[in-house]
Simulated scan of single mutants.
Amino acid sequence: MATPHGRSPAVIAVATAVVGALVALLLGLLTFGVQATVHPDEVPLAVAVGPDAPPPVRAIADKLAGAASEEVGWRVSTPDEARGLLASQDVYGVLELAPGGATVVLSGAVNPSGTQVAQQVLTGVAQGAGLPAKVVTLNPSSAAGRSAPLAASALLWIAGLAAGAAFTVLTRRAGVGPRLLGATTAAVLGVGVVAGFFALWDSALPLGWDVLGYLALVAVAFALLQAGLLRVLGVRAMAVLAPLYLMAPAVAGQVPELLDPVYRALLWSWTPFRFSTEGLRALLHGGSLDAAQVWVFVGLAVAGLLVVLLPGEEAQPDRADRVVDVRVDEADGLPGAQRRHTA
């Protein structure tokens, strides 16, 4: 028996099975594939020795610097220089060597995935050299402070996406004004939700104008980009916008040195989530924004706004209540058609 669209149920069964396989393939590539291929590749670490360090201690640093390793890239410097490299996130951890002991220096401002690898490697090196090691964390961060930057990026994307998709489904035709109003309102409310979570998770997290302003910039950029694509493509834009969300925890949650080179080049290099995550992490720990962490979202906001303002016909959603004239009586030779021919 044929379907109302004239296609065989067998054909539809095969086609939907192919769609399911393609969805599974996409999910596997964007989520589990990233996690399954995590491997250290030139993770930047520093070993620090003072200018008056005895020869045995300096020999350990020189041995590390000369050791060929694909997993770790070593830099030898003084303690002050090494801590400066850590503050600028040029390295993810520092091993300070001294006679009779070592200090593993970490920073709460560094991506937690990089900090975890740095602590494991540096502690293992100290133990291998027979040196007792203590761990010191600069700008210590709570569990909420470590997860908040990535969570905020994902939540702001979801807030704009859910609002934009619902608006597109519920409105047959919308002008520029209502669409911009919806995107702006979604951005403001999304920032409010994120700020409320920050206060709930850890009241010590800073919520100054710099943090709130950056959250607003990211939220507006996300909402306008989504509004533009939904205006042009309708609900079909969800096939692009929804998978992008999957990259937030899988890709932006890792430092690039832990990602497979393919994922690093094709996903991490351009995903906006990593810019927002790292920018917010810097602000929450007393740092400052890089230029790219601002201009990426200014560019997204401008591009989305231009698409929303672009003249032309909007994509129309497929509605179940739309009336379609199929001219059944004329096609099938029903009495109605016969009466018109004989009249």
Rank of each mutant, 00 (worst) to 15 (best):
Q89D: 13
G84P: 03
V104K: 03
R83A: 00
A151P: 09
P178A: 05
A162D: 02
R83T: 10
Q119Y: 08
A65K: 10
E71V: 13
S153Y: 01
L138K: 05
A102M: 06
V94N: 05
A118P: 09
L155F: 10
S141K: 04
S153F: 03
A68H: 11
K134F: 02
G175C: 04
T103N: 04
L170E: 11
P178F: 02
A67D: 11
L86A: 06
Q89H: 12
G108M: 00
G182S: 10
G100I: 11
L64W: 07
D80K: 11
S107C: 02
Q89N: 12
R179W: 00
P149I: 10
R173G: 13
Q116H: 13
G164I: 03
L180N: 01
V110F: 03
T103Y: 00
A87S: 14
A87K: 09
R146G: 15
A163P: 07
R83V: 03
V91C: 00
V110H: 04
R173L: 11
P140S: 08
L156T: 05
P132G: 08
L181C: 11
A102V: 03
A126L: 06
N111R: 12
G108R: 00
E70Q: 09
L64H: 07
A151H: 07
L155T: 15
W74R: 08
L180G: 06
P178Q: 05
R179C: 02
P132F: 04
A154T: 14
L150P: 14
V135G: 08
T168R: 02
P178N: 08
R83D: 07
A98E: 15
